[in-house]
Amino acid sequence: MNALESVSQRCPYCGERIELLIDTSEGAQTYVEDCQVCCQPMVISAWLTEEDDLNVTVFTENDAY
């Protein structure tokens, strides 16, 4: 698996498809990134399974906490 993985997700605010670059060398991570379309802050959670499959979930700030 490459250190940077590109994944396609939908923005939880505007619903548009966006591309995210995830640094898989960081392990499990949660961070905030603005949507490239509507500029709303999305909370992104990414982790690798035991089989090294990348899982990514995207939430609004209110849904994540």
Rank of each mutant, 00 (worst) to 15 (best):
residue 1 M to W: 01
residue 1 M to L: 08
residue 3 A to D: 08
residue 3 A to R: 13
residue 4 L to H: 05
residue 4 L to F: 10
residue 4 L to Q: 13
residue 5 E to N: 08
residue 6 S to C: 04
residue 7 V to H: 01
residue 8 S to L: 11
residue 9 Q to V: 15
residue 9 Q to P: 01
residue 12 P to G: 06
residue 12 P to L: 04
residue 14 C to F: 10
residue 14 C to R: 12
residue 14 C to M: 10
residue 15 G to T: 02
residue 16 E to A: 15
residue 17 R to C: 02
residue 17 R to F: 00
residue 17 R to E: 10
residue 17 R to S: 11
residue 18 I to H: 02
residue 18 I to P: 04
residue 18 I to A: 04
residue 18 I to D: 04
residue 19 E to I: 09
residue 20 L to P: 05
residue 21 L to G: 10
residue 21 L to R: 04
residue 22 I to C: 03
residue 22 I to T: 04
residue 22 I to L: 03
residue 23 D to P: 00
residue 24 T to M: 02
residue 26 E to I: 03
residue 27 G to E: 05
residue 33 E to C: 03
residue 33 E to Q: 14
residue 35 C to N: 05
residue 37 V to D: 14
residue 37 V to I: 15
residue 37 V to Y: 14
residue 38 C to Q: 09
residue 39 C to K: 12
residue 40 Q to V: 06
residue 40 Q to P: 03
residue 40 Q to K: 15
residue 41 P to N: 12
residue 43 V to F: 01
residue 43 V to C: 04
residue 44 I to R: 02
residue 44 I to T: 05
residue 46 A to D: 07
residue 47 W to P: 01
residue 49 T to V: 07
residue 50 E to C: 05
residue 50 E to P: 04
residue 51 E to F: 00
residue 51 E to R: 10
residue 51 E to I: 01
residue 51 E to T: 09
residue 52 D to V: 05
residue 53 D to G: 00
residue 54 L to W: 03
residue 54 L to S: 05
residue 56 V to H: 01
residue 59 F to V: 00
residue 59 F to H: 08
residue 60 T to I: 11
residue 60 T to W: 15
residue 62 N to C: 07
residue 62 N to Q: 10
residue 65 Y to R: 15
residue 65 Y to F: 04
